[in-house]
Each structure stands twice: as structure tokens, then as C-alpha cells.
Computed example of a mutant assay.
Amino acid sequence: MNSVQLLRGQLRPVLMGLLLSVACIATVRADDGLALTSIDQVPDGVEVRGKQIAAYTWDDQQGKNLLVLAEQVNERDDDGTQTAFVYAAQYLIDGKRPKRIWMLYDDVQRCQFDAALRFDRTATRVTDLNGDGLTQTIVGYSLTCTSDVSPNEFKLIMRVGKSQKFRLRGVDRYGAAWWDEEAGALRGMPLPKDCSVAAQQALVSQYKEQGTELPLPGCYRDEDDFAKAPDAYLPYMRKHWFALMQKQDSEWSQAQTQPPEPTEDEETVP
């Protein structure tokens, strides 16, 4: 089915237990995607590694699905290094015991600086791009091991069924611009609108101070994963990637913009 349903009384007994244990249920609609039901607690039999940050349910032709997202940054070891990881898994929960369809685990191990892996929850989507009632699940997250303010590695991943995985991997917009005190304005390479190698190199030629390493902040490396994917997948993922990067770019730029100096009338006298 193409619609996502809320948890309701006609569900099977195992889901009734879930309903009673849920502290908060809310429907979240993502642009260009299906509406997801957000839940605070997952049913017995669903594994969560790390700290759960989100869980969603929806219905499709396979039945009732559950997506759980978790992440963790560990305390530093005795040698001063740090480890962090993200975890995601999709389950079918129509039977007596939840059945895991796929699992994602990624980590930064023994980082000598600051380790960080974080899901971008605005990247989470469930779509039915083929219109056949079988959904695609999309998650995105950043990862880094660094001691400075610089762009992070970013991965946008689409999972379809048990084994199909399509990825766009590149660099996000964190730290991509900075405030120039003398100019009184932001500096830095603008967000690319095309991640082809030719387009990135053309942008580099205009902003030589940024260097020549590709991918540029806000771009992915290649589209190789989609060579044999259905036609609808890549255009959607491209659009989704650039929307996420535009949001990051806007938020980061606003954070760097200094507020105006107060006038004499606005200044407070102690």
C-alpha cells in the first residue's frame, strides 16, 4: 500500500503491547516521502545498539515496518583515543517476533582527536518511487575524527529490501564558510549545484584559495552505485542530497554571521 497508517486497535496482539508501551506517538510527514509514525519505545525482539535517537513505523505491501536509529560516542580510552558509532535497522513487526530486514553499522575507532557520528534526522525518508507498494528507506549521517572545524564525511544511503543498497558519499557543509572580519562578510566556496567532476573543477577554478581536493564541501564523489538502479532512484537521491546540503549551508552560514554592534541607545548602562 502507498499510505502509511497509524497504530490502531485492529493490529495484532504483539502490536497492542507496543501501543501500550509507547510513551509518545506522533505522525511525521517528510517532504516527497510517506508519512511516518514516530514511537519512543520499540517492541521486544528489536535490537538497539547505542542510544536510540528515533524510531518510526509505516505500512507497505510487506506489512508493518519499523526503523530504529541509534548512535553513541564512547568515553576516551586510557590511551586518549575515542570511538563512536551509528546503528540503524529495519524490521517487519507483523509476526509474533520482529524480523530484521537489514542492519547498518558504521564507526570511527580509536580516534586521537574528537570522534563524532551523527544521524541527520531530516535525511530520513521512506518512499515508494516505483509505485508498487514496496518502499525504499533512506538515512543520512556524518562522521569525523578531527581536532578542527572542517567539513565532515557524509553518507546518504537508500536501502531496498534485504540486500539492495545505493549510496551517495561525500562531504557536508559543516565549516565550509567563515566570517571575514575585514570584509565584514562570509567567505568560502559556495554550495555546488552539480557534483560532476567537471562542474566541481570549474568551481575550483573560480575559488583557487580553496584547493583542488574533490569532492568539494557539499558534494558527493560519484554515482556509481546507481548504475543498475531503477530510473527513479538517482534523480530522487540527487535532489535529496542537495536539499540537505542547502539546509546545512544555510544553518552554518547563519551561525557564522555576527550580530550587528549595538547602538548607543541599545547599550545598557551598568
Rank of each mutant, 00 (worst) to 15 (best):
Q206W: 06
S205R: 12
A202N: 12
G170E: 07
Q136H: 08
V171A: 02
E209C: 06
G184P: 10
W178M: 11
G211M: 05
R187Q: 10
Q206R: 14
S205C: 02
L203T: 00
N152I: 07
S150G: 11
S205V: 02
L203V: 03
V126F: 00
T212M: 07
A198S: 14
M158Y: 11
G140R: 10
K165C: 12
S147Q: 12
S142N: 12
R118V: 14
A177D: 13
S150H: 08
Y141V: 01
P192K: 05
L168E: 00
R159Y: 13
M189P: 05
S196G: 09
T146H: 09
Q201C: 00
L216W: 07
V171S: 04
Y141D: 00
S163M: 05
L143T: 10
K165Y: 07
L203D: 00
G188Q: 14
E181I: 12
V160E: 12
T212H: 07
W178I: 08
L129N: 11
T122D: 15
Q164C: 06
Y207N: 08
Y220D: 00
T135N: 03
P192H: 02
E182W: 07
A183F: 08
A123F: 10
N152V: 05
Y141P: 08
S163R: 10
R187G: 12
D222V: 02
G133N: 11
T122N: 12
T146G: 08
G161H: 00
D222C: 03
S196T: 15
A123I: 06
G131T: 03
R121A: 13
D132F: 02
K155H: 15
R169Q: 13
L186M: 04
L168R: 06
E153S: 14
A176I: 03
G184E: 05
V160I: 12
P151K: 04
R121Q: 15
T212A: 13
P217Y: 01
Q200I: 06
E153R: 15
S150V: 13
P190L: 08
A227P: 09
S163W: 09
F166A: 06
R169C: 08
V204P: 05
R221Q: 13
R118A: 15
V139F: 07
L203P: 01
G184Q: 06
R159D: 06
D172K: 04
L203I: 01
P190S: 10
F166T: 06
A198Y: 09
A177H: 14
P217W: 00
G161R: 00
R125P: 00
R121E: 15
D128V: 04
T137P: 07
V149F: 04
L156P: 07
Y141T: 07
L168F: 08
P215F: 04
Q210R: 15
Q200H: 03
L216A: 03
R187V: 09
L186W: 04
R125N: 01
G188A: 10
D172G: 08
Q136N: 09
T144W: 07
P215G: 04
I138A: 03
A176K: 04
I138Q: 01
R118F: 14
T212Q: 13
D148F: 11
A202F: 04
V204Q: 11
G131P: 01
I157W: 00
G140C: 13
C219V: 08
T122R: 13
P151D: 02
T137W: 13
F166D: 02
